[in-house]
Nucleic acid binder design. Sequence first.
DNA 1: ACGCAGGTGTACG
DNA 2: CGTACACCTGCG
Length: 317
Amino acid sequence: MKTTLQIQPEGPFNLDLTIKSGQTSQPPWKFKSDRFWELIKVDGKLCLVGVHQKPGDLNGPIMVEAESKGPVKKDVLRSKLLEIFSLEDDLSELYKFLESDEKLKPTVDFCRGLRIFKAHDPFECIISSICSANNSILRWSRSIRKIKENWGENFDFKGETFHTFPSPEVLMKVPEHDEEMEPCQGQTYSLKSCGVGYRCSYMKKAARMIHEEINITTLGEMNYHDAFKTVLSIPGVGPKVADCILLYGYGIGRAFPVDVWIGRILSHLYFEGEDLKPRKVRNFGMEHFGEHAGYVQLYLFHYARKSGLLKTLKPKK
DNA sequence: ACGCAGGTGTACG
DNA sequence: CGTACACCTGCG
């Protein structure tokens, strides 16, 4: 069953940039025939959505086309997409803030319309974020894709198969190593074979905890500090991953995920290249950027990459 | 070929 | 409490 709708974002929105900017909430959506496609759950139903934006038209409407087994309520689909692409964030407010800081000012021209690309659901976000730790974007997105192909729900459309992310219960039961299972048509399907490395046991333990112990649906209602401490208790989740989860899974804008790159960038911009401990970078970011911290991190990283600044920042001398 | 990059857990002081 | 090192994989 087909559903179509239009969304008129408030302020600039760059769909292409947002999807491809390497945010660790999820790998880029599949691009085919002018649209980005992804299988998501809307109102509990599998729903393949295709989103289109006229190239270069940062202020134009977003055209949405969705295919589902049964009927899907338009307003539910609409709010899901508003959520995923953070379309209700007030970018003019953000840009006012960025322009008030000489160091942040240049990021705006490089990033106009870039928004936080949120995960489809908190569980997927937690596992994705654990998998992204100490990993490359390439390897991480490959792993997530394989996990979805191996254990997600399928949806066939026009000769292609799309996959959801598996539930906690499914993921906690998947085999860790190939030796644990019979080869199936010459192929094996273990979590290790997805290339997750030593993160394998963290991911399985996290899935078990979320299935049996922790209620992750109420995290969004907690204050930042309590939510941070709660996700920190999940195996494989340290400060960086915790902030990714809060930012991309729950839209908590004060979260400031600190990796080595954001550390080098802030050190270069504000500390004359001094070697900074991650703890100090995080405190500085949260104090100075406040509720914009998540966006500042996103904008600084993209700016540094596009402007060539990143290449000049050396991994200590 | 093989060294290296990349956060977290653990084992120390 | 802070610091040092091992962990796994794929790229250059």
